[in-house]
Design a protein around this nucleic acid. Structure first.
Length: 338
DNA sequence: ATACAGGCTCGCC
DNA sequence: GGCGAGCCTGTA
């Protein structure tokens, strides 16, 4: 592998890739392999230096002097974000200060729009480990294989490619009910009816509204795409983790905090880089609970009660168990063709 | 084993 | 126009 070297201060590669904003990078050698757009990339961190190898479609290095690759990496990892200033703009309170201290070097990266949107459509009601699996399955089945050094990686399939797939193809990538949404959205993009690139010109609220019009995209996912693909650093996605953090740290005495109240608070209190603040709070909370067991609260209890009811309903209606339907699915797959 | 995940959508009231 | 139920599947 031929390497290029890029100075990068104020950057923690591993934390950035493990902070739940991107799901396809895998550990390899002393660093990570993945893709940036259509290129296969190996990257590792040596102190204040990044060492990277980038292979384009034909498996050769992009250019001999590595200028394109250099620029692509700086852009993708947002090395131009003034991180010190951004962190200084966060509010000064105990929760925020702890997160800011814990997440030093964490950057919000610039992801390709379709890849980011599609991945987050797949993320609903899923844990990180599973989102990673879905992303990999989609890439293996519908993406293109690339090599960087000895490592094989797969590009994320373009909307046109997914639009040509069947719902069943996608279900076989473990998407479940998300398959229908991903397919419908892929078709809207692929047909040109919706143009993610041209939406860059829209204001935050207009862009959010456009994204929410896509099947499988609600406020949470739209905000993730605003933040991770459109550089709208104010966008503040509220998922169950952040909801817990906000309620516990900022509304400790309140019994019920309504969703509009929480949204209003998140949009005003955290300032112009609210999305960054959110990512820091999110990552910090996840890492803390990974150490010492998952904290339970009323919202999770509520959710489990709901799930119980669903299960009761399933039994009452004598639907096949998950186990049985999985076996039926497998049997169908192994049946002779034609 | 079984509860629970980084939700969205639709039907109901 | 708020509330709850249904949707799929893998992991802890």
């Amino acid at each position: 592998m031929k390497f290029i070297e890029i100075p990068a201060s104020d950057f923690d590669l591993a934390m950035t890739l493990d902070s739940g904003q991107v799901f396809h990078w895998e550990k390899a050698d002393n660093g990570f392999v993945g893709t940036i757009g259509d290129c296969a990339v190996y990257i590792e961190e040596c102190g204040e230096l990044l060492r990277a190898s980038v292979a384009s479609a034909s498996s050769r290095l992009i250019s001999d002097d590595g200028q394109d690759a250099h620029a692509a990496i700086c852009r993708y990892f947002a090395l131009d974000h003034p991180l010190a200033e951004i962190c200084a703009s966060f509010p000064d309170d105990p929760a925020m200060n702890a997160a800011r201290h814990f997440c030093r070097g964490l950057r919000i990266i610039r992801q390709p729009k379709w890849e980011c949107l599609a991945t987050f459509i797949c993320s609903s009601m899923k844990q990180v480990a599973h989102i990673r699996q879905i992303s990999l399955a989609l890439r293996r089945r519908l993406g293109e294989r690339r090599k960087v050094g000895d490592h094989a990686v797969y590009t994320f399939p373009p909307a046109q490619r997914i639009a040509r797939a069947t719902e069943n193809d996608l279900r076989e990538c473990a998407l479940g009910y998300r398959a229908k949404n991903l397919l419908a959205t892929a078709r809207l993009i692929s047909s040109g009816e919706c143009d993610l690139e041209s939406w860059s010109a829209l204001s935050d609220p207009d862009l959010r509204e456009k994204l929410c019009s896509l099947p499988g995209v609600g406020a949470k996912i739209a905000n993730c795409v605003l933040l991770f693909a459109y550089e709208r650093l104010r966008a503040f996605p509220i998922d169950v983790w952040i909801e817990r953090v906000l309620k516990q740290k900022y509304f400790p005495r309140k019994k019920k905090v309504t969703e509009p109240r929480l949204r209003e608070f998140s949009e005003t209190y955290f300032g112009e880089h609210g999305g960054y603040a959110q990512q820091y709070l999110f990552h910090h909370a996840r890492m803390i609970s990974r150490k010492s067991g998952t904290p339970r609260d009323s919202s999770t209890t509520l959710r489990s009660a709901r799930n119980d009811k669903r299960e009761d309903a399933r039994i009452a209606s004598r639907k096949p168990s998950p186990q049985a339907s999985r076996e039926a699915h497998l049997a169908k797959l192994s049946a002779p063709l034609g």
